[in-house]
């Protein structure tokens, strides 16, 4: 009787009205009938979308900086931190004249996330020193083949003309950190040129 929910079971003979079952059946039918007028809680997905929490962890995005250069420097910390080993990358050196494309001297030539392996824990986001990778509120689309679920840079890097808003994911700590100009990687491309 710890929870006060225990019920004492009594074995008694059924009364006549209980034995013919019909009242009980009618009672049950009324219960199901009342459900005819209940609202269905279903969200019809492609047309209707559930409201996500600001920290929902969906499909990743590789961010660009203010001038449109890729932030990722292929340090590999995301791949190391990934418990599902879903991230693969191959680094390359930035050539002269590519400064508008890549923020750092080293960049990810290939950057792949296997969405079938990914558990959307967000550790990559946490590990990233360059604020390059974020999880967004987008749902990873389904596909007919496994190969399609390995997302390369074409799907991960945000388009230059349509940046993906991740401001909701940036906590106060992050924003504070970003203001700190003593860290070189927090400088914009133009600021660096002046230096």
């Amino acid at each position: 009787m710890l929870t006060n929910r225990a019920k004492v079971v009594v074995k008694k003979e059924l009364s006549w009205s209980e034995r013919i079952y019909l009242p009980a059946i009618l009672q049950g039918m009324l219960i199901t009938f009342s459900h005819l007028f209940k609202r269905t809680p279903t969200i019809k997905y492609p047309e209707q979308k559930r409201e996500f929490s600001p920290v929902y962890r969906g499909q990743h995005v590789l961010k660009r900086d203010e001038s449109g250069a890729e932030r990722c420097t292929a340090c590999g910390l995301c791949a190391v931190s990934c418990p599902a080993e879903a991230i693969t990358m191959d680094a390359a050196e930035r050539k002269k004249g590519e400064e508008h494309l890549y923020r750092e001297e080293k960049y990810a030539r290939i950057y792949e996330i296997n969405m079938l392996r990914c558990i959307f824990c967000g550790l990559c986001e946490e590990a990233c020193p360059k604020e390059a990778i974020f999880l967004t509120d987008r749902i990873v689309p389904s596909s007919f083949t496994r190969g399609e679920e390995i997302f390369g840079k074409d799907k991960l890097v945000e388009p230059v003309d349509a940046p993906i808003d991740v401001s909701a994911r940036q906590t106060n700590d992050v924003l504070e950190f970003k203001k700190n100009k003593k860290f070189y990687h927090n400088l914009t491309f133009n600021d660096r040129q002046i230096r």
Binding site: F33, H35, L36, K38, R39, T40, T42, K44
Partner: peptide
């Protein structure tokens, strides 16, 4: 069946 179980059913 769907409506009685608070679902949508074929739609």
């Amino acid at each position: 069946a769907a409506v009685l179980q608070d679902r949508v059913g074929p739609s």
